[in-house]
Amino acid sequence: MPRIDLDAYVAAHAGSWVRLEELLRMRRRTGAEADELVDRYQQVATHLSVVRTSAPDGELVAHLSSLLGRARIAMLAVRVPSWRGVGHFFTEQFPAALYRLRWWWLGCVAGNVLVTGLMMWWLSAHPRVEQSLLSPAEIDQLVNNDFASYYSENAAGAFATHVWINNAWVSALCIALGILGLPILWLLFQNIANLAIIGSIMMRHDRGDLFWGLILPHGLLELTCVFVAGGVGLRLFWSWVEPGELTRAASIARAGRTAVTVALGLAVCLLISGIIEAFVTPSPLPTWARIGIGVVAELVFLAYVFVVGRAAASRGATGDISAALLEDRVATQA
């Protein structure tokens, strides 16, 4: 881009900078003023990019960068409590992120289900392994008391909170450790190994109906969420292994922002599975009804991804945070 006359450029655009300053000084803004703040932010971001490229002036660059930094904070403060923003997150950003990353987490689901099935089959054929893990008294206690009582020994509300926090933590770890790759596989393996060991013990002692009747109502959605987190974490790992056309830093940053979107959305999904685990799993409903509720919850999640998410992705949603809150990297034109 050819150099510009800096004085003329400042004279032409200083009014936008002054107006942005005025908007930032306001303690309260109307809806129109909030929209104007976003528009002015985008204008000034373009101006800064032009100045950096065509007429670098340290003092002016510092002033505009500071102005934009304050504007980003102001826009975030406005958007956080906005119900419209929450609605946009759950109808556009989150489902689009799930849909765009679907092959990563669907692969994670398939791989974990396959490994769990193989482990349960192998453990069932090798009862001595069971004996090396638990004593006969511990197995008897698990089969005849502990497994069923786990879901009903605490108050439902407290239990729902407990399982929600625990599962959200596991999912967050899967995403947070994504950059390292291998720790995710170990975390997922620990999760399914526990399921496979307990399942094989229960089925070998003719309590398979109890096991599946208590696992499936909440486990379908819960484990899907954990595997989604694992798949997204692996995608984060791959973002620096194979950054594509982006630099590694830019690739990791983009994948990381999308991972945060997924983590926030999964917290809500896991809250739903926690409520099912606390109120439906131990309820006196017939087994078919409890499992049916779990199946419906899983189908709703999949419909959310492949109907709502697909539509959001087709409209251009990516799961990344709003462009208005990114750094000053907009298209430049004098």
Rank of each mutant, 00 (worst) to 15 (best):
A34S: 11
P56N: 03
G294C: 05
A14S: 15
I4N: 09
R102N: 05
T261A: 06
L134C: 07
I321R: 12
A278L: 00
S49F: 08
F237Q: 03
A323D: 13
S322G: 11
I184S: 07
R290F: 00
Q43H: 12
E298S: 14
Q131C: 12
L285A: 04
W105C: 02
L214M: 10
V113Y: 00
A278E: 00
F279E: 01
T318V: 02
A96C: 03
S273Q: 00
L177N: 04
L187N: 08
F237L: 09
R28T: 13
S54F: 01
Q141G: 14
L188H: 06
Y9W: 05
F306K: 05
R290N: 00
G292S: 08
L220W: 02
F159M: 04
E21Y: 10
R40K: 12
G111Y: 04
R204E: 11
L221H: 04
A11S: 13
V268G: 00
N191A: 01
L118M: 06
L6Y: 00
R84Q: 07
G294M: 02
S149N: 13
T46K: 14
E242R: 15
A156W: 08
T116F: 13
G309S: 05
L180W: 11
R28A: 14
M75K: 15
A32S: 12
R52V: 11
G58P: 04
M119N: 06
I73P: 09
G69S: 08
Y9V: 11
M75P: 12
R72Q: 03
E298V: 11
R84A: 09
G199S: 00
A12Q: 13
R128V: 15
A71R: 00
L270E: 07
A267M: 13
G111M: 09
V61K: 11
L326Q: 15
